[in-house]
């Protein structure tokens, strides 16, 4: 079953075409990696699918809803976590979970059981009543991911979620992603880390706003005669005309 279906999606800012006519489908339960150099258009593409930015043209449906007609139904069915930390630092862990649970329409008893489950899993029982700003970055990111999935969304969008996080925490973070995928959640993730690209079921590589390659990591490596995803990426990204940013 396709949970995301994109046809000729384009976003222009003035004369600059950030996302140029991209087309792809994503199956339910997939971990879909979105790679690209800075400025290749990954974040813009993701923001359109989340309803944060209006496409200039093209069509897309997310979680079975049309991007233009049912934006709010889409929002009920997706989770989103950006590289910019998005929990409230001046609220405690418990209060953050309660707030996001509440605005996704969870009942109070659901919020309570989710809170217990979540802090137990992240081993944050002792700091549940401390302010989020007092947590180390890695913990914050894991917490942010769990909170972004508090309402069991069909799809979760992760925009460079592991930026600035140490390798151990990154591993733990990916464990959370695998668990979500096992539960049937589709994961759409952008990343710069090539080892993370290897964890994905399928990978799309964006160059200058276009999807230059899209397949499983195995097929891509064979096609470009590369020993790892890093080499694949370099071969494709070298063609880019756009500079950094």
């Amino acid at each position: 079953m396709k949970v995301i279906s994109v046809r000729n999606l384009t976003k222009r800012f003035g004369s600059f075409t950030a996302v140029d006519n991209i087309t792809f489908d994503i199956e339910q339960g997939e971990i879909f990696g979105f790679l690209g150099a800075n400025g290749a258009g990954k974040t813009t593409a993701m923001r359109m699918l989340c309803g944060l930015s209006r496409p200039t043209s093209g069509e897309a449906s997310v979680a079975g809803y049309d991007l233009y007609k049912n934006a709010n139904r889409i929002k009920e069915n997706i989770g989103y976590m950006s590289q910019k930390f998005s929990l409230y630092e001046d609220l405690t862990i418990r209060e953050n979970i309660r707030f996001y649970g509440g605005i996704y329409g969870l009942s109070l008893s659901d919020i309570r059981s989710k809170t217990n489950l979540l802090v137990k899993k992240l081993k944050l029982e002792d700091s549940i009543n401390s302010l989020v700003k007092s947590l180390p970055l890695g913990w914050k990111q894991k917490l942010a991911l769990s909170v972004a999935m508090i309402h069991d969304p069909k799809i979760v969008f992760l925009d460079e979620p592991t930026g600035g996080v140490d390798p151990i925490t990154r591993r733990e973070f990916w464990t959370l992603i695998f668990e979500a995928a096992d539960r049937g959640t589709t994961v759409f993730v952008t990343t710069h880390y090539m080892d993370e690209a290897e964890y994905c079921n399928r990978v799309a590589i964006m160059v200058d706003g276009q999807v230059e390659a899209l397949d499983t990591t195995g097929v891509l490596k064979a096609k470009y005669a590369a020993k790892d995803m890093g080499e694949v990426f370099l071969q494709l990204a070298r063609k880019a005309k756009r500079g950094d940013g």
Binding site: C50, G51, L52, N72, K75, E76, I78, G79, Y80, S82, K84, F85, S86, L87, Y88, E89, Y100, I103, Y104, G105, F157
Partner: peptide, 14 residues
């Protein structure tokens, strides 16, 4: 500034 507004914008909050 803190980016929480963007997070709010992807929730179903009107």
């Amino acid at each position: 500034e803190t980016g929480t507004l963007e997070q709010i914008n992807v929730t179903p909050i009107r």
